[in-house]
Each structure stands twice: as C-alpha cells, then as structure tokens.
C-alpha cells in the first residue's frame, strides 16, 4: 500500500492560497492549541503575500478556517476601512470565495489587529487575533527554551514580580495592552496587544479565539467558555481604561473604547474605536432599520 492511499485526497482543501499540506499542519496545531488553552504551539509559518509582522500569523489561521460559505470581517484597531484591513479582507475573499462584511453580527470569522469588537460574539463565530509577540515571559526571561520550561512548571513568579515592581515604582500597574492573563487556571498568555478594556471579553466567552504570531511562528487559543483571568493582586483590582464616560464625536454613542484624536488647541476629541458600531449607530439615528447586537459593555460597565 502506498502512502498516498492512506491519506485523504487533498484536492478538496486546495483553495484559499495555502496548499492542503500547510493547512493540515496548521489545523493540527490549532486543535492542539484548543486542547491546551493558552499554551503556545509552534508551527511552520508559511510565506503569504505580505511581510512578516503585518498579520501573517492571523492570516494563515484565517485561511485555514475559511471556506466559500464563510463571511469574513477584518479590522485593524477596530476599523474595517484601514488599508491593511481592507487589503487582507479582499485577499481572503478573493482566494477563498468567502463573503466580505463590516458587520460584526454577520461575520463567521473575524480577523483583528489589537481589538475585540464591542458587540458580543456568539458560539458560531471565531475571532482570530494577530499577535506580534506571543511570549508573556519574554520580558523576564530572554532565553526562550528556559521560558518554555517556566510555562511547563507554571513558574510565573518573575512575571508577578514585574507587576509588583510597577506598583512600587509608579503606584499602579502600568501594563496597558497585552495584559498577561491566566488561561484555564494553567498557562499565562499574552492576549495580543488588545487594550485592558477587551481582556474581560475573552473570559468565559461563547466564541473561540485564536491568537497567532506569524513571525514568531507560534499560536495559542482560548476555547469557548474558558477562564481568562488577568494577573492581578487580590487587593489591587483589575482596571480597564477610563473610557466609560467618553462620547464619540461622530456617532454620539458612549460607554465604549474610544480612539483619542489630538486637537490643534491641545485638547482631545474621541471617536468610537469599533468603527462599524459607530456607523451603525449613525445610520440608526438617521432612521434606517439597523440591527445593533448586544454589547459586552453596557453604559460603560462590563456586563456579560
């Protein structure tokens, strides 16, 4: 019996830019990542027509998941219309036949750089986060093979120490984006540089999240209904950014994560970072029948 006789035909998955064997490898690593939540899985990281560091990790995961029946949304810092987001979205739909959307509610796969949408994701949706640096221990242990041992031993004392040091030096924890978080009570992961605002959205979420770093060739996952707990001292509660009271100057909505836009007179204006949420709010205010889904935050308070 020949080897090819033992394997399934590859033709069926030969679309979507990546060849079938690349997809097969990625799919295996993605399944492993789901099986061990928050644990980083190395993968080969194929070439895609984009420079490393521009979301190639997320793209490879998306290309492995996507099929002609998928609906794909791509955001860059919350916006669907940025050059990179638009190019990635068009590329994915062109090579796979998937439908494009800006609407969080309608997307089956959402690839994102540095944000989780404000509308609550459901069990039939997958979030793919682009990750520049997947190793939360890099700052405390430059040697990656030792860092791996530390993960194996759940040896996170040094990481906790950096948080202790921030409070001692600055009076508060300075870690903004990429807040280290304990997944499923076992592995500490970096949730990619999403703001602190977004980390609670991953905790016990209905949706599946993949986090993939193309340059570093590692991916990890947060399966549905999995604990994601930011590392915090018991007497120093986790705090999200003070955005609850900011009002979007374009859509007038408030209680969501905002982009700060410096003004000539020295002050700042704010615009809702989840740009499609802002667009939907404007259209609804103009009388169009627009569906806005439930949001993780209500009136600036996390409520899911």
């Amino acid at each position: 019996m020949s080897l090819s006789a033992l394997t399934k035909p590859w033709a069926a998955t030969s679309y979507g830019f990546l060849d079938a064997s690349a997809k097969r490898e990625l799919r295996r690593k993605m399944l492993k990542a789901i099986a061990v939540p928050g644990c980083q899985m190395p993968y080969a990281s194929r070439e895609v027509p984009m420079a490393r560091g521009w979301g190639t990790g997320g793209l490879q995961v998306t290309l492995t998941l996507v099929n002609p029946a998928s609906t794909i949304k791509v955001i860059d810092q919350g916006a669907d219309d940025g050059v990179n987001a638009a190019s990635i979205r068009r590329f994915i739909s062109r090579v796979s036949g998937a439908t494009e959307t800006w609407d969080t509610l309608g997307a089956s796969i959402i690839q994102s750089r540095h944000r989780v949408p404000e509308e609550t994701l459901g069990a039939d949706q997958i979030l793919v986060l682009q990750v520049p640096n997947p190793e939360p221990l890099r700052g405390v242990e430059p040697n990656m093979s030792i860092a791996r041992q530390m993960h194996a031993d759940a040896d996170y004392g040094r990481l906790w120490l950096t948080l202790y040091e921030q409070i001692v030096r600055k009076g508060r924890i300075m870690q903004g984006a990429a807040y280290p978080s304990l997944v499923n009570g076992r592995h500490v992961m970096t949730p990619s540089p999403i703001p602190r605002w977004d980390v609670p959205k991953l905790h016990m979420a209905k949706h599946l999240t993949f986090l993939s770093a193309g340059r570093e060739k590692r991916l990890h996952a947060v399966p549905p209904y999995t604990r994601v707990e930011p590392l915090v001292f018991s007497d120093r509660p986790y705090r999200v950014e003070d955005h609850a009271d900011l009002v979007c100057r374009r859509s007038g909505i408030s209680g969501y994560f905002m982009n700060e836009i410096p003004q000539d007179h020295g002050g700042s204006a704010f615009e809702v970072s989840d740009s499609n949420l802002g667009i939907k709010a404007i259209r609804r205010a103009e009388g169009e029948p627009v569906e806005i889904g439930a949001t993780w935050y209500q009136d600036g308070e996390f409520s899911a």
């Binding site: 004392g157 906790w160 120490l161 202790y164 001692v168 007497d235």
Partner: peptide, 17 residues
C-alpha cells in the same frame, strides 16, 4: 523588597499589601 517578594510570590502569595 521585590527580591524578597519574589520568594513569597513563588509560594503563592497574591496580596500586594
């Protein structure tokens, strides 16, 4: 103090105070 605290962190102490 952090050098001393590291010991306590390894042993599982999670209260800053």
């Amino acid at each position: 103090s952090g050098n001393v605290a590291e010991r306590l962190l390894i042993a599982g102490e999670r209260s800053f105070d």
